[in-house]
Amino acid sequence: MLPPVRPTVLALKTPAVPRWKRSGHDVLDDSLQRLTLAWMKALPEPLRPHQCARRHPRVLNNIAALWGLPLRCIGYLDELQADRRGNRQGFGHDVAIELQRLRARRLALATKAQPAPPADFPVTQPMLL
C-alpha cells in the first residue's frame, strides 16, 4: 500500500500593489464600463470627455452612473472642482474644461426638464377635498 499523498502548498508571491490602488477602489475603476461607453456615445461629439476617459476612467464611470440623477450629478461635478481634502493635485486643464462643459450640460438639461405648472392651475390656492 502506498503512503497517502500530502498536498503541497506553494506560497504565491503577491505583487506589490501601489498605495493609491489599496484605497478601496475596484478593478473596474481602471477602465471604462459599458454604461459609461454608451453614455459617452449618446453625448454630442463636442461634449464627449475623451481626455477624462483616458486619464480618469473611475471619475467618468461615476459621472455616467449619476447622470440620470441631476442634483446628485451636479453635486458630484461640483465636488470634483473643489479641493476639500487638501494636498490634491487636481485635474489637468483639458480635463477640467471637459468637466465644466459636462456640468453646464447637466444643469441645462435639468432646468429644461422641470415641468412648469399649467397656466390655469392656481398654485397658491390649497385644493379642497
Rank of each mutant, 00 (worst) to 15 (best):
V5G: 11
V95P: 02
A108I: 00
G92P: 08
L2W: 07
R6M: 09
L99N: 02
G68E: 11
D83V: 06
A110H: 04
D120V: 04
K13C: 07
G92R: 11
P46K: 07
K13Q: 13
L43N: 06
G68F: 03
I97L: 14
H56I: 03
L37H: 08
K41I: 01
R85S: 14
A42T: 03
G90R: 11
R22P: 02
W39V: 00
R103A: 06
L80R: 00
L99D: 04
G75E: 13
L10F: 08
V5D: 12
P117N: 07
G75W: 04
V9W: 10
G90F: 06
I97T: 12
P118N: 05
R22C: 14
L129W: 10
R85Q: 13
Q51F: 02
G86S: 06
P115K: 08
C52H: 02
L60F: 09
L102K: 01
T111I: 05
D94F: 02
G92S: 15
D120M: 08
R58W: 04
L128Q: 15
I63E: 02
Q51V: 02
L102C: 05
P122Y: 10
K112M: 10
Q81C: 08
L10A: 15
R55Y: 07
Q51E: 12
L102H: 04
R22S: 14
R19H: 07
L12V: 11
D120H: 12
A110G: 04
L10V: 14
Q89M: 11
D78Q: 08
P117M: 08
R84W: 06
P49G: 09
A65D: 07
A113F: 03
R101Q: 15
D30H: 15
S23A: 12
R22A: 15
L28P: 05
L99Q: 06
G68W: 01
T36P: 00
A38T: 11
A96R: 11
R55I: 00
Q89W: 07
V5W: 09
K21P: 01
P46L: 03
A38G: 08
Q114H: 07
V27S: 15
A108K: 05
P3M: 04
K41N: 14
A110P: 00
T8Q: 14
R19G: 03
F91C: 10
P70K: 05
V59S: 12
C73D: 03
D83C: 11
A42Y: 06
R6F: 06
P115S: 15
T14G: 12
